Simulated assay, not measured.
Amino acid sequence: MTISRAMLAGLTATALGLTACQQAASPPANEKAATETAAPGASGSGVVRDEVVPEAPPAPTAIQTQPGPDGIQFALLKAAVTGDILTVTVNCTSEKNQWAYLKFDEISIIDDTTSQRIGVLKDNAGAWMGSPLNGKDRIGLNCSPNGVIWAKFPAPPATSPTVSINLPGVAPFDGVTVAR
């Protein structure tokens, strides 16, 4: 059987077109796609999916950083009001296996406008509103390599744009702008 040049050109064009369609349908090389594979000798096929692991969100930028006991560093991440509650979030880091223990009744904010000291809130059952809890009256966490502490306070009035945050044994976070 002989193939004319016209038929050969048509088959080549068709093959190139199919190849281009397959390439266009395949995902980019930098994305992981689900693949189907059948086990040899198996009557059905199984689906194997590669997990797409999302990138970790960027670490929050510290508003201020202060030294604490035993070489622990404390970084203020957030001081924001929602409704009538101010939430303060702090990250602690240590190169050694260090634990931070903070008693709730010693954690406070100072309203910079009125100089009023404000303590950590308690819920209706009398439990402190902060974490991670270590016992009934304190926060405790391993700061190696890092850990996050948060506490809730009654919000200062809107006329008080800044607060100072006091953690026992840690240099104060002074003049912190309250996000509203």
Rank of each mutant, 00 (worst) to 15 (best):
W99T: 15
Q116H: 04
F173A: 06
P60M: 07
F173P: 05
L86E: 04
L86P: 02
E55V: 12
P172D: 05
P58K: 14
Q98P: 08
T159I: 08
A155G: 02
T114M: 02
Q73N: 14
L141H: 00
G169Y: 00
G147C: 02
V81R: 08
S115I: 07
G169P: 06
A59H: 09
E106C: 05
V148P: 01
K78R: 15
I149Q: 02
A62R: 03
K96Y: 12
S108A: 12
G83D: 13
V148Y: 08
P67F: 09
K103N: 13
Q64D: 10
E106F: 08
F104L: 06
E95L: 14
P132L: 05
N134C: 07
G130M: 01
L86S: 02
T89F: 00
N166H: 11
A127I: 06
C143G: 07
T177A: 15
K96D: 15
Q73M: 14
A80F: 07
V176F: 01
N124V: 15
A125M: 14
W128E: 04
N146L: 09
S115Q: 14
I72H: 06
C143W: 04
P132Y: 04
S108N: 14
V88R: 00
T177H: 11
Q98I: 12
I72A: 00
A158E: 15
A171R: 12
I72C: 04
L76Y: 01
W99V: 14
A79H: 13
L167K: 01
L121G: 12
P132S: 05
G135Q: 07
V176A: 00
I118V: 15
K96C: 07
D174S: 12
N91M: 11
G169A: 07
M129P: 05
V148F: 01
I110N: 00
T114S: 15
P69C: 11
S164Q: 00
L77M: 12
L167Y: 06
